[in-house]
Simulated scan of single mutants.
Amino acid sequence: MSGPRPDPEPRPAPDTVSDVIRWAAFSCALVPVVLLWYGTSPAGAAGAALGLAAVTTACRLLLRRSERCARRHGGDGEVSAEDSGAQRGGRHTRRPTPVD
């Protein structure tokens, strides 16, 4: 009886940004159809479609930018407490202090 076998090649991470963008594009097409079905004016449905398309485009750009930054800064996407600024403010000492 042998233990679990290691994978010969690591599996690539799923492209979640593309999945999100595909769902957003689907919503951009579906929402105006539903609005028209329920009696909204064509101008209102077109306005909703344009608004959703603008938000989707902005989100896509921001997601791709964050992916590039994550790859540039180590690839794992994790930021330490020091890098994030979580330790700003408060008392700073060089040595550990006892906890009550």
Rank of each mutant, 00 (worst) to 15 (best):
S2W: 11
E9S: 10
E9R: 12
P10Q: 10
R11T: 06
P12W: 04
P12L: 12
P12T: 10
A13Q: 08
A13W: 11
D15C: 08
D15S: 06
T16Y: 15
V17L: 13
S18Q: 14
S18R: 14
S18L: 04
D19F: 12
D19A: 15
V20S: 06
I21R: 04
R22N: 14
A24Y: 08
A25F: 10
F26M: 10
F26H: 09
A29E: 14
A29H: 15
L30N: 10
V31C: 01
P32F: 03
V33I: 12
V34G: 04
L35V: 06
L36E: 01
L36Y: 00
L36V: 00
S41H: 01
S41G: 11
P42I: 03
P42Q: 02
A43R: 14
G44C: 02
A45L: 03
G47Y: 05
A48H: 07
A48G: 00
A48D: 02
A49F: 02
A49K: 06
A49E: 10
L50Y: 02
G51W: 09
G51F: 09
L52P: 03
L52Q: 07
L52G: 12
V55C: 01
T56L: 09
T56D: 05
A58G: 07
A58S: 06
C59M: 14
R60L: 01
L62A: 15
L62Q: 07
L62E: 08
R65M: 14
E67D: 07
R68N: 04
C69R: 15
C69W: 15
R71F: 05
R71A: 11
R71P: 03
R72T: 09
G74C: 06
G75P: 03
G75W: 06
G75T: 10
D76I: 07
E78H: 03
E78T: 05
E78N: 00
V79F: 11
S80Y: 00
D83I: 02
G85F: 00
G85E: 06
A86M: 04
Q87F: 14
Q87R: 09
R88P: 06
G89A: 03
G89H: 01
G90Q: 04
G90E: 01
G90K: 01
R91V: 08
H92W: 00
R94S: 12
R95S: 02
R95F: 11
T97L: 11
P98G: 10
P98I: 08
V99W: 14
D100F: 12
D100R: 13
